Amino acid sequence: MNAIYLDHAATTPVHPDVLEAMLPFYTANFGNPSSTHSFGRGARTALNRFRDFMAKSLGCLPAELIFTSGGTESNNMAIFGVLNANKDGKKHIITTQIEHHAVLHPCERLESLGYEVTYLPVDPTGLIQIEDVEAAIRPDTVLISIMYVNNEVGTIQPIEQVGKLARSRKIPFHVDAVQALGKLPLNLAELPVDLMSLSAHKIYGPKGVGALYVSKNTRLLPHSYGGSQERKRRAGTENIAGIAGFAKALETSLSAMESLVQDVMEYRGLMVSILEQQLGCDSFVINGHMEQSIPHILNISFPGTSTETLLMNLDIEDMAAASGSACTSGSLEVSHVLKAMKLPENVTASAVRFSFGMGNSIEQIETAAQKLATIVKRLRSN
Score class of each variant (00 low, 15 high):
residue 9 A to L: 08
residue 12 T to A: 02
residue 13 P to T: 03
residue 27 T to N: 12
residue 28 A to Y: 06
residue 29 N to S: 11
residue 31 G to L: 03
residue 32 N to H: 07
residue 38 S to G: 02
residue 45 T to A: 07
residue 55 A to P: 04
residue 57 S to P: 03
residue 63 A to G: 14
residue 80 F to A: 10
residue 80 F to Y: 12
residue 81 G to Q: 06
residue 92 H to A: 06
residue 99 E to C: 15
residue 103 V to L: 06
residue 107 C to E: 02
residue 111 E to A: 04
residue 112 S to P: 02
residue 112 S to I: 10
residue 113 L to M: 13
residue 115 Y to C: 10
residue 116 E to C: 12
residue 116 E to F: 14
residue 118 T to A: 05
residue 120 L to A: 04
residue 132 D to K: 13
residue 140 D to K: 08
residue 151 N to V: 11
residue 153 V to C: 13
residue 157 Q to R: 00
residue 162 V to S: 00
residue 168 S to A: 13
residue 170 K to C: 08
residue 179 Q to F: 15
residue 180 A to P: 02
residue 186 L to S: 02
residue 188 L to T: 06
residue 195 L to G: 00
residue 199 S to M: 07
residue 203 I to T: 11
residue 207 K to D: 10
residue 220 L to K: 13
residue 235 A to E: 01
residue 240 I to E: 00
residue 246 F to M: 11
residue 255 S to N: 06
residue 256 A to I: 05
residue 263 D to S: 11
residue 268 R to A: 03
residue 273 S to C: 01
residue 282 D to R: 10
residue 288 G to W: 04
residue 292 Q to P: 04
residue 294 I to D: 04
residue 297 I to P: 05
residue 301 S to F: 09
residue 301 S to M: 10
residue 327 C to F: 04
residue 335 S to I: 09
residue 345 E to D: 14
residue 364 Q to W: 05
residue 368 A to G: 01
residue 378 R to T: 14
residue 380 R to A: 05
